[in-house]
Structures are given as structure tokens and as C-alpha cells.
């Protein structure tokens, strides 16, 4: 039913409806003096009009008494938390609680799926610590010693060879006395970086890999001097360059994060339920 049809329906259409509208307004004192006089004349002349007025008066007085027995079932005094939350009504609180329960369940489900698909995600990565430890050791060395070592001392050189600078995660990579031997195949041995190692991946490995019978490359003294200026030697590792923890194992943090999220949401949900019960108990 559209607006205009409804308007037609509401407008008094029969003589009785028009009479009821006049009498209703008369009862409520909403008529002008002239209208009221006209109604009073009508009332004096017609018994049916008087009866209609009596009925309407009865309706009005009966309705006036209708809510005398109605009392609010509880106090609706507003508590500070309800106002602070900007709508702490039972409905909103219930919806919030349901939302948090659902989110906790979803997070828990994702956690299970993540662990089942990659069980090693939760295992500690020992090689990372070793590689990082090696580099941390290098970082802590005095600059002059490092510079000297880079140019003079062959025993220390491998640590600062480009290979040692790579954020490799394999334990062999971290061993300073494991230069590739002559005749080694490319890709062989622990020195070789592979994409699976994480870190710089294939390119770094290719850089490290000695080709066939090549002599082990000695670090270029100028390059090492540039690299080991006091600023660069003491500066913290740049993201993606030296810290193995920055390598591409980001997914490893997803499972613990999901587990934490699930637990937090479950706790929040329980707190909301408790708060709602407290609220309704007041």
C-alpha cells in the first residue's frame, strides 16, 4: 500500500467515521469554539451521537487505566560502563559476544589448519640462531682487527667473505673453516646457498659458488674497507641483509599468532558474557 492509498484509508470516509473524528477531537478539547458549539448542538439533538460519545469516552478512560499495572521489570538506571561502551544494551552485548566467539573459533580453526599443513611451523629454528650468532660475533669485533683480518689474516678471512655476509641459515654456512674445496661441483657442500635456505636465495648462492676448479676468491681489500668502515661495521643490520631472522620465514609466525588470537578472543568473549550477566542481574 503506497502513501497515497494509505492517506485515503485514513481519511474519514463514512458519516460515522466523520462523526467519530469530531467527537474524538471534542473529547480531547481540540476543536475551535465554533466547532465545539456545532458538536454540542448535534449532541443535544441526537441520541445516537450521545451514545457514540459515551463509547469513545469509555474507550479513553479504559485505556487510561490500562497501563497502571505495568511496571518496568527492572531498573533501567544507566551504569557508567554501559554509557562508555556507546551502546551497552543487552542486544549489542549479545551480538558482540557472539561475534567474538565466532572469531575465536575461526582463529582456532585456522591455527589447526596451519599446523596440520606445516607441522614444523611451531618448531624452533636452531640454524637461525647459529647463523645470527656468527654474524653477531663478527659485529662485535673491533673495526681495526676486522680490517686487518680482511686483508692479512687468511684464517679469519672466510668469516668476512661474501659468503659469510649472507644471511644463510644452514649450519655449514656458519662454519668459518669450511671453504669450498677445489674441484667441488657448483651447488655442492654446505657453503652453497639455495633458495630453500631462505635468505638471499639463488642469486646469493650463485655468487658464493666457486666454479669448478676456480681458486677460492679472496675478498677485495677496497671493497672490504668500504664495507667495514666504522659506520657500517657498528650499524645494526639492515632489514633483509644480514639478520637471518628477517629472512623469508614470515609464515612461521602465523600459527602462534592465530593461537594467541584465538585465546584472546575466547577470553574477551567470556568477559563480555560475564559482564552482560552482571548487567542483567542488577
Amino acid at each position: 500500500m503506497n502513501r497515497w492509498q494509505r492517506r485515503d484509508l485514513e481519511a474519514p470516509s463514512t458519516p460515522l467515521e466523520r462523526l467519530e473524528e469530531r467527537l474524538s477531537a471534542y473529547l480531547d478539547g481540540e476543536l475551535t469554539d465554533a466547532e465545539r458549539s456545532a458538536v454540542e448542538v448535534e449532541l443535544a439533538a441526537d441520541a445516537e451521537t450521545r451514545e457514540t460519545l459515551d463509547d469513545l469516552r469509555l474507550v479513553r478512560s479504559a485505556l487510561a487505566l490500562l497501563d497502571e499495572g505495568v511496571r518496568a521489570p527492572r531498573s533501567f538506571a544507566i551504569t557508567a560502563p554501559a554509557v562508555r561502551s556507546g551502546g551497552g544494551s543487552p542486544v549489542l552485548m549479545r551480538r558482540l559476544e557472539l561475534f567474538m566467539r565466532g572469531s575465536a573459533a575461526a582463529a582456532a580453526l585456522f591455527f589447526v589448519v596451519a599446523v596440520m599443513n606445516q607441522p614444523t611451523l611451531m618448531a624452533p629454528v636452531a640454524s637461525n640462531d647459529m647463523a645470527t650468532g656468527t654474524f653477531a660475533q663478527a659485529e662485535s669485533a673491533p673495526v681495526e682487527t676486522l680490517r686487518a683480518a680482511a686483508t692479512d689474516d687468511p684464517a679469519v678471512t672466510p668469516m668476512f667473505a661474501p659468503d659469510a655476509m649472507q644471511p644463510a641459515s644452514a649450519p655449514a654456512r656458519a662454519m668459518p673453516a669450511a671453504p669450498p674445496t677445489a674441484g667441488g661441483e657448483p651447488g655442492e657442500g654446505g657453503v652453497m646457498g639455495t633458495a630453500a635456505d631462505g635468505g638471499l636465495g639463488g642469486d646469493a648462492g650463485a655468487l658464493d659458488a666457486p666454479k669448478g676448479n676456480d681458486v677460492v676468491p679472496q675478498p677485495d681489500a677496497d671493497l672490504m674497507n668500504t664495507m667495514l668502515t666504522p659506520e657500517t661495521a657498528t650499524a645494526p643490520a639492515q632489514p633483509g641483509t644480514f639478520r637471518d631472522s628477517d629472512s623469508s620465514q614470515g609464515v612461521g609466525g602465523v600459527a602462534p599468532a592465530l593461537a594467541t588470537l584465538a585465546v584472546l578472543l575466547a577470553i574477551l568473549s567470556a568477559l563480555t558474557a560475564w559482564s552482560r550477566r552482571e548487567e542483567s542481574g542488577r
Binding site: E17, E21, S24
Partner: peptide, 8 residues
Amino acid sequence: KSRLSRAR
């Protein structure tokens, strides 16, 4: 006014 009288 109209709705009230109809309801009554």
C-alpha cells in the same frame, strides 16, 4: 487527529 479517531 485522524489516526486517533480511527483507532478509537
